[in-house]
Design a protein around this nucleic acid. Structure first.
Length: 580
RNA sequence: GACCCCAUAGCUCAGCUGGAUAGAGCGUCGGCCUCCGGAGCCGAAGGUCGCAGGUUCGAAUCCUGCUGGGGUCGCCA
């Protein structure tokens, strides 16, 4: 059950009973446990509104609240806070229910939406690099969280498989390899692109060849298309390897090329809607003129935006703006999505504001969200690069993470076979990279530091995996079936038990909040609090050596902790391990 | 030039639609291995929340201005 949401309702009806009005309860978890578990702050706002003493109102609300069986105490404090303390037996019973719940207490959302999550989006003929890291990790975590809370989610890899680079690639392939792509791998493709790109800068005839090749490809020439297909296949093979290592999957791979046939229609639609006009040969949408053409000003800051949103270049070619409009059309009309989430670098915020404004104007009534994220920086706060200034490939980054995890595991004296150790090292290494990214507010730039990442202490992926493994270890040691463990209720006696229980109680609220706000760090925060509270608990309270109801209750707390940790890790795209 | 984002402990970062004494990790200092996994636990020190105003019962949070840093803005994506 979503406890916070539930008590917010409880408090709201208490206000209605006590004061005869419908007013927001403003219920929040208290920051300090000496103020109880939750505080109801609505009385203060109400007091001002009705010009009455907020403490008097709070007293009436408290008198009503205390009648609820889950509420052990409701006290008025300060200027008009109502502090709620939950009943221990109620908490214990509520948690015990979750032991038998395959969803770990996370009730599904009432109104499921059809959501497209657009993430990762690598380019053809290029290796994935750190620039793709956050989109891939975040996007995948969002997909699993949104799906778990009950939405119908379509993960879509909007691959960069169309555009000017293919003219260069095909021309380059002809020039340097006689048009033969056999035996090429991704690095070979990158090499050709680099050479071709360099050559085109000072060889005008070659640049013309490249343009001609692009024109041929885009006009549907069969031979060009076959070459293009080979580039796509070579890249795809490489991408599949990386995604397999990262445990990332997609429902759709609708790249830019997929939308190419729709582009003329985009132009027609935009023109028909009377929001575009030609300027200097290009077809442009000017937002600062919107009031004149549409009757209403452009939303937000766009009203002042003098630079155009260009949908067709002066040479007649289309741009990513055009493709992106087509993408919205397809998601709306064919995929029937009511919502689309773009997991893309925050620097593209303006582009998405423009795109969304256009989409709304064209009548695509779906919720469009840009879930932006900051740049990956090195230890010195500069955008991360290799020594020679190139982008670090994702493959090399994962190699390093796994290697460091393996070294670390070798130091520990956990009985693992060689084979197991390698497998665990992969889960721990990749998990560390993912967790380090997800634990941070996605909008801040993210300082990537291998030494910290692999430290494996504190708020890190490995620590979470470690805590989960310890839970399993307790059940193994006691010869108890963890998955099948059930108790009718949980008795909370020791202070460490009470603290842990309250953290466990928050899970459903946290998962929903993280999913709805697209902020996985809310979930990592919870997992970290949970593993800390768990460590404190097992340090203070003997589990296996205790007896009777106490032992059962403690085992139940362990089982719940294990489930939330594993569930949380899986939702984040991190693989839990049995031993490490 | 316009617009956007950021500024919180030595470092890296949380701080939800305004709520009580601003929180973590790392680092520092001091404790805890006859005890279910020490990748751990307990405790301590450490902050004029960039600056100045304003809004109000109450501001790190909202508004305005300023300073400092980053970013974006016609034919790349």
């Amino acid at each position: 059950m979503r406890i916070e949401r539930y008590f917010d309702e409880v408090a709201k009806s208490a206000i209605r009973e006590a004061l005869g009005v419908d007013a927001p309860a403003i219920l929040k978890p208290t920051q300090d446990s000496k103020h109880g578990d939750y505080q109801v702050n609505g009385a203060m706002a109400l007091g001002k509104q009705r010009k009455e003493n907020p403490r008097d109102l709070a007293t009436k609300i408290a008198a009503e609240l205390v009648k609820h069986p889950a509420v052990a105490a409701a006290d008025v404090a300060g200027p008009g806070f109502v502090n709620l303390r939950l009943d221990e037996a109620w908490i214990g019973a509520e948690l015990a229910k979750n032991l038998d719940d395959p969803r770990d207490g996370v009730t599904p959302i009432e109104k499921a939406e059809r959501i497209v999550v657009d993430y990762s989006s690598p380019n053809i003929a290029k290796q994935m690099h750190v620039g793709h890291l956050r989109s891939t990790i975040l996007g995948h975590a969002l997909v699993s969280m949104l799906r778990f809370v009950g939405h119908h989610v379509i993960g879509d890899n909007h691959v960069g498989d169309w555009g000017t680079q293919f003219g260069l690639l095909i021309a380059g392939l002809r020039k340097f390899r006689g048009g033969d792509a056999s035996g090429l791998d991704i690095e070979g493709l990158e090499g050709i692109y680099r050479q071709a790109s360099a050559l085109s800068k000072d060889d005008e005839s070659f640049a013309n060849e490249a343009r001609a090749e692009l024109a041929k490809l885009q006009s549907g020439d069969a031979q060009s298309h076959a070459l293009w297909q080979q580039f796509v296949d070579i890249t795809r093979a490489e991408l599949d390897k990386i995604y397999a290592r990262m445990g990332v999957t997609f429902e759709e791979w609708l790249g830019e090329s997929f939308y190419d046939p729709m582009l003329p229609r985009v132009i027609e639609t935009v023109t028909a809607a009377n929001i575009a006009r030609e300027d200097q040969g290009a077809l442009c949408i000017f937002f600062h003129e919107w009031a004149e053409t549409t009757g209403t000003p452009a939303p937000g800051r766009l009203a002042k935006q003098k630079e155009p949103f260009i949908v067709r270049k002066k040479d007649g070619a289309f741009l990513y703006s055009t493709t992106d409009i087509a993408t919205v059309m397809h998601r709306h009309e064919v995929l029937h999505a009511s919502r689309a989430i773009y997991v893309v670098d925050a620097r593209q915020a303006l582009h998405f504001e423009q795109l969304f404004a256009v989409a709304a104007r064209l009548g695509f009534t779906m919720r469009l969200e840009h879930v932006g994220f900051g740049t990956v920086l090195d230890e010195n706060g500069k955008p991360i690069k290799t020594r020679d200034g190139k982008a670090i490939t994702l493959a090399s980054l994962l190699d390093e993470a796994e290697k460091r995890a393996l070294d670390k595991l070798a130091e520990m004296d956990v009985e693992l076979s060689e084979e197991e150790r390698v497998r665990v090292a992969k889960a721990v290494g990749v998990g560390a990279v993912k967790y380090a990214d997800l634990r941070q507010n996605r909008l801040s730039d993210y300082q990537f530091d291998f030494d910290k990442l692999i430290e494996f202490r504190g708020n890190s992926g490995p620590y979470m995996q470690y805590a989960a493994a310890r839970v399993g270890s307790i059940f193994r040691k006691g010869g108890i079936d963890e998955a099948g463990f059930r108790v009718p209720s949980i008795a909370l006696e020791a202070p460490e038990e009470k603290v842990l229980a309250r953290t466990l109680l928050r899970f459903a609220d946290v998962v929903h909040a993280a999913a709805e706000s697209c902020q996985p760090h809310l979930l990592t925060d919870h997992l970290y609090a949970l593993s800390r509270d768990f460590s404190t608990f097992i340090e203070a309270c003997q589990v296996l050596k205790s007896e009777g109801a106490t032992r059962d209750s403690r085992l139940a707390l362990c089982a719940l902790t294990g489930r939330q940790l594993r569930r949380g890790l899986v939702l984040l795209g991190i693989e839990p391990v049995e031993r490490m």
